[in-house]
């Protein structure tokens, strides 16, 4: 095994161990030893996430493992690898870029967090805006980050209309055509998604991941 392969393996293992601190540490070591950060992502981070995804499909690992591996991977990417790649003026190839959040007035975000984990494991770059996200924040972040997909969740029938408000605000700002919009949450249905002009609705996390892949043509 070459030294490079050893590095990839250590990155992969840290994620498979769900160890975010370790993932950051070995990613730094990789950079210090001169390995290309893009390669670390593709042959270390992504390989680990693929393994986790496969093991989730076969029932060997659970959603909690998927979420923990996703978090570890995200830390290695965001804290170490991405800044390095940007320094070099290069780009990381993701399945797609997703901006996701729970709408204003709603703080029930566990479903959205599960979807984020699923998308991360599926190779997406995910920016999670958290809960109780104001309409203006969604609009501003879409403008600044230029994601492929905007995902919005709502659990309450009192907050679900906000999904519509966000879509309307995107229209007003001339941003609606620049981003695909996905909606989810217990009271959301396909009909609601169509009514408010969303591009897709995910009935659960796996469905959301499949629909997201379809939207970006992956």
């Amino acid at each position: 095994m070459t030294r490079k392969e050893e590095v990839f393996e250590r990155v992969e293992k840290s994620i498979l161990d769900f160890d975010g601190d370790k993932a950051v540490e070995v990613a730094k070591e990789a950079i210090n030893s001169g390995v290309e950060p893009v390669e670390v992502i593709e042959r270390g981070v992504r390989k680990a996430l693929e393994t986790v995804g496969k093991k989730y499909e076969t029932g060997e690992l659970f959603i909690i493992h998927l979420a923990a591996a996703g978090e570890a991977a995200n830390r290695a990417i965001n804290e170490v690898l991405k800044p390095e790649i940007e320094k070099k003026g290069e780009e990381i190839h993701f399945t797609g870029k997703v901006l996701i959040g729970t709408v204003a007035g709603d703080i029930h975000e566990i479903g959205k967090t599960i979807v984020s984990a699923m998308l991360l494991a599926s190779g997406f770059e995910v920016t999670d805006l958290g809960k109780d996200v104001p309409i203006e924040t969604f609009v501003r972040e879409v403008k600044e980050q230029n994601p492929d997909i905007l995902g919005m969740s709502a659990l309450l029938s009192t907050t679900i209309p906000v999904q519509k408000d966000v879509i309307e605000a995107l229209q007003k700002e001339g941003l609606r055509d620049k981003v695909k919009v996905m909606v989810g949450g217990a009271p959301v249905t396909q009909e609601w998604a169509e009514e408010i002009g969303a591009d897709a609705y995910g009935v659960d996390a796996v469905d959301a991941m499949k629909k997201a892949r379809k939207l970006v043509g992956a």
Binding site: S157, T158, I160, P187
Partner: peptide, 12 residues
Amino acid sequence: AGVFDVPYEVEY
């Protein structure tokens, strides 16, 4: 059940 053939605001 739930009443979903009305606007969400007045569901309850």
